[in-house]
Design a protein around this nucleic acid. Structure first.
Lengths: 157, 157
DNA sequence: GGTGAAATCTACCTAGG
DNA sequence: CCTAGGTAGATTTCACC
């Protein structure tokens, strides 16, 4: 059967939408919402997991309650673009827990980092004692999140 | 007792770390990893949920398998900054499923949007037919994600 | 920290298109 | 032959001790 059947019907989409909001919904609860039997809900969920549509189930934490009061984005420009410098920078990114996401982008910035820190001094230490000293980094530009209008919404299905 | 006891000990931190990676770990599995009894694991988890440290449990989907091949960030600059224009723009953001996150930032950009679209034309339609026509928006700058080095890592605990 | 009842998941089985 | 619905055994959770 493979993953040729990657087509998602309307019920799959509503199922994914529900699970994106609450991963602990039971098959029974989902069944009455989606007008299907609990058996079929379980079957569809297993298939979506096996196909890799559902990658994992994770707990969403409140950064504030963890003492992470500063959230921001850091644009990093590399001075030297050799592959070994890039890999070295990628390793640095991987080892720092404050950097929760990292992307390479089109346009002016080489990397965009999403960071969580306990306070502003911690963010400044990250920038001046970790990022800037790296041999491949030429300059960085950071922006602090002031307010979050929309938070990690579900992916559109 | 309230939330005065917001202090997290070492076991809480490891528990949160584990649940950030797999929300379906059972109390029994967590117990043997953390060298504690299943009862205490369940009790700690309930407390962390009640205190709001754990906000929710969600399914993480693979955007590619949903047909969302383009991921990007859009910086939006407002021309007029009145409160009613801001609220109008916030409503627009809330209604568009492609916009999964939105922040107000320090620095030059008024808003930063994280978007998922099925292809580049869809992103261009979002920009030119949805964002730019809005009366409060003066200009936008979009960057496409080329590669994701680090993906939605767990919050540092 | 441990125990037991209630609920849940999953694999297997049966029916219908 | 494929998809939907139902049932039994094992597992998990949660309130109580």
């Amino acid at each position: 059967m493979r993953n040729l059947r990657t087509m998602l019907d309307e019920i799959d989409k509503r199922l994914l939408n529900a699970l994106q909001q609450d991963a602990h919904l039971t098959a029974h609860q989902l069944a009455e919402t989606l007008n299907l039997s609990p058996s079929q809900i379980g079957r569809r969920r297993q298939k979506l997991e096996a196909d890799g549509v559902i990658r994992s189930y994770t707990a969403q934490l409140d950064p504030r309650r963890l003492g992470l009061s500063v959230q921001g984005f850091v644009q990093v420009h590399l001075g030297t673009h050799g592959p070994e410098h890039s890999r070295s920078f990628a390793r640095l990114v991987a080892t720092r827990a404050e950097i929760v996401s990292a992307w390479t982008m089109t346009g002016d910035a080489d990397y965009l980092l999403r960071v969580y820190c306990e306070d502003l001094p911690a963010l400044n230490r990250l920038i001046h004692e970790v990022l800037l000293p790296h041999k491949a980094v030429s300059r960085v530009h950071s922006q602090i999140v002031m307010d979050q209008l929309k938070r990690d919404g579900p992916l559109p299905t």
